[in-house]
Design a protein around this nucleic acid. Structure first.
Length: 242
DNA sequence: AACCTGGACAACCGCGCGCTG
DNA sequence: TCAGCGCGCGGTTGTCCAGGT
């Protein structure tokens, strides 16, 4: 039994969006806000699938999008986050304000992948390729071998993974990367951190109120990050501080 | 000038997950 | 408890365009 189609395909436009369709979508979302994508096309007078509207808005029409080329810093950040998160483009995009998952995914496939290959690094594993003569250091993050523990206590292994990620990336792989990752929430600041708004690495991975959650415990324990030293490199609101 | 090729990016498709009744 | 619905995500495809032959 197949899944029912998300919309009536017979009477929906496909392909590139016209200026008029864009204007209609923008006007409707400005007036009513986004969400409820299934009913939005009809309400906005668009002959489009709701998913198509959502994609168009998120990837192209949203006012807070940062158009234009990726900077070298963004490149490196994407590479580091990809080595940590894999193809979790939405998670990566969450740490790059103004960039969308689709944009990052495309950029990865067209630019960064090639860049890594030219450096002799396998883009999918972040390992140095065997044929290179460069010394082989730890270049990947593996959770293999924790299977027994994971089955017994999934929560524990999650926190252990968090610590492992921090250890490998901070101490061995990316000594310049602070993995107290934080996502800014532009509309609704929740946690004040010396003027910054952020959620800690543990929270961003979905483990809130844990003992390792630095933002949930923020009142009691201040982040020991470089932010308190005023050491800014423009990534404060990404939560990735050098 | 015409054709071919590959890069870049917008858009589509199918699936998984969470929510709700 | 479970089925249906809607949303979001990641992979894939389609289209446009610039550069090369």
């Amino acid at each position: 039994m197949g899944r029912s189609p998300c919309c009536e395909k017979a009477h929906t436009n496909k392909g590139a969006w016209t200026k008029e369709e864009d204007d209609r979508l923008i006007a409707y979302i400005r007036a009513h806000g986004d969400g409820c994508w299934r009913s939005l096309p009809k309400a906005a007078g668009l002959l489009r699938c709701g998913k198509s509207c959502r994609l168009r808005w998120i990837n192209y029409l949203r006012p807070d999008l940062k158009r234009g080329n990726f900077t070298e810093d963004e490149d490196e950040l994407i590479i580091k986050l990809h080595s940590l998160l894999g193809n979790k483009w939405s998670l990566i995009a969450a740490r790059l304000p103004g960039r969308t998952d689709n944009e990052i995914k495309n950029y990865w496939n067209t630019h960064i992948r090639r860049k890594l290959v030219s450096r002799g690094i396998d883009p999918s594993t972040h390992k140095l390729r065997k044929e290179t003569t460069v010394s082989r250091e730890v270049n990947t993050i593996s959770f293999l071998g924790d299977k027994d523990v994971e089955e017994d206590n999934p929560d524990k292994i999650f926190l252990d993974k968090d610590e492992k990620i921090k250890k490998i990336l901070v101490e061995e792989k990316c000594p310049d990367l602070n993995l107290d990752l934080k996502i800014s929430l532009p509309a609704e600041p929740s946690i004040e951190n010396g003027g910054k708004t952020s959620a800690c690495f543990v929270c961003t991975l979905g483990v809130q109120n844990s003992k390792d959650c630095s933002c949930c415990n923020f009142a009691a324990t201040a982040h020991g990050s470089s932010s308190s030293k005023g050491n800014s490199n423009g990534y404060e609101n990404l939560g990735v501080w050098k």
